[in-house]
Simulated scan of single mutants.
Amino acid sequence: MPATPAVPTTLELRLAAAKARGWTATCLDPETNWLWRLSRGERQIVLFGSQSPLNTATGARLASDKDHTATILRSAGLPAIEGARCLKAGVHLGPAGGEAGDPYADQRGLGPGLRFAEVSGYPVVVKPNRGSRGRAVTVVEDADQLRAAVEAVWAMDNLALVQRAVPGVDLRIDMLDGELLLAYLRRPLRLVGDGRSTVLELLGRADARAKDAEFIARTTGDPLWAATLAAQGLDDNGVPAPGQTLAFPATILNLNRCCTATVYGELPEPWIELARRVGAAMGMRHWGIDLRIPDGDDPVHDDPDPSEAVILEVNASPVMIQVYRMGAASLVESCEGRLTDAILELAR
């Protein structure tokens, strides 16, 4: 069987686009291949992995702080997710130290999260204030689970967020200078048996990324995958009966987990306008937003009204490699070309 072609990284796509435009690329750290200088004549700019250089340092740092981002968006009249913050003990104390010097006493410990959950009702979502790819993001059903989830976040972040669990699906919108790059609708994975195909064969038809061994390993290693199959008496090589449905219901929809997506190269204008307002509030040139929206056959186009959308997060360096792997290579290459043109304009 022929080997599956390697998928390029975001950095590799940008380097290729720059070279196609007549720029020379020089690796500055061969040990990691992370720093590259692009030069053309007297002009030059350094790329730092997949990080976008198009936003200011302040804008990028604000977007990496989920709590600050929600505060900014709410102040601009935008529908940011509601929640509470639980600050780890012993950090960010005042000059005097100890309880007397604690300016954040009312936000420290589990109390704020427990009080929010009591008012909002379970389930709630616990996540680190900083982080990506769904790391340490957990849906909890009671106070004991909340305690464990917050303490797990504290092992990696001083601030744990406890947020309302909003039903629906996720719409990611990636933007550049007020214009759409691409968008995709994330849904929980759902496989339907035909009486002949194994579970892994059904996965291969449902998601183009299943050609990649790393994707298969990550998916089949997800606890949700194992629990869903076990509940129906199946394993990876089991053959579901005709019409037998394997649904992987997840409140957290991330393409690194049991989740698939529909990719869009265009969107109705109301969605784009909402994304523009987010970018303006955050002061960004290049950004992505994650929205939780009501589910439906085609919730993006059937009723293009974002009034019920909730903004979950803003990303200052959105990458599109998962979309590339899902079969939209030409669209992603075009978007990365547009991004590269904007980045090269920064060169001095």
Results as ranks from 00 to 15, higher is better:
Ala3Asp: 12
Ala3Gln: 08
Leu15Gly: 08
Ala20Gln: 15
Cys27Arg: 06
Leu35Arg: 12
Leu35Thr: 06
Leu35Val: 04
Arg37His: 05
Ser39Thr: 13
Ile45Gln: 10
Phe48Ser: 10
Leu54Lys: 00
Thr56Leu: 05
Ala57Trp: 15
Thr58Glu: 15
Leu62His: 11
Ser75Leu: 00
Gly77Ser: 13
Leu78Asn: 03
Pro79Phe: 06
Ala96Ile: 01
Gly97Ile: 03
Ala100Phe: 03
Gly101Phe: 01
Pro103Ala: 03
Asp106Pro: 00
Asp106Glu: 12
Pro112Trp: 06
Arg115Phe: 03
Glu118Met: 11
Pro123Arg: 01
Val125His: 05
Lys127Phe: 07
Arg130Ala: 10
Arg135Lys: 14
Val137Gly: 11
Val137Met: 02
Ala149Glu: 12
Val150Asp: 05
Glu151Val: 12
Ala152Gly: 03
Ala160Trp: 10
Val162His: 00
Pro167Asp: 09
Asp170Tyr: 09
Arg172Gly: 01
Asp174Lys: 07
Asp174Asn: 12
Leu185His: 02
Leu185Gly: 07
Pro188Cys: 08
Val192Leu: 11
Val192Lys: 10
Arg196Lys: 13
Arg205Ile: 03
Arg205Lys: 11
Ala210Glu: 04
Phe215Ser: 07
Trp225Gln: 03
Ala226Lys: 15
Thr228Met: 05
Thr228Pro: 04
Thr228Asn: 07
Ala231Asp: 13
Asn237His: 12
Pro240His: 06
Ala241Asp: 14
Ala241Gln: 15
Ala250Leu: 15
Thr251His: 15
Val263Arg: 14
Glu266Arg: 09
Leu267Lys: 11
Trp271His: 11
Glu273Ile: 04
Arg276Asn: 06
Arg276Gly: 03
Arg276Gln: 14
Arg276Glu: 01
Arg277Ala: 10
Ala281Tyr: 04
Ala281Arg: 01
Arg285Ser: 09
Ile289Met: 12
Leu291His: 01
Arg292Ser: 00
Ser307Ile: 06
Ile321Asp: 09
Gly327Arg: 06
Cys335Lys: 01
Cys335Tyr: 01
Glu336Ala: 02
Arg338Asp: 09
Thr340Arg: 13
Asp341Met: 13
Ala342Gln: 04
Leu344Arg: 15
Glu345Trp: 00
Leu346Val: 07
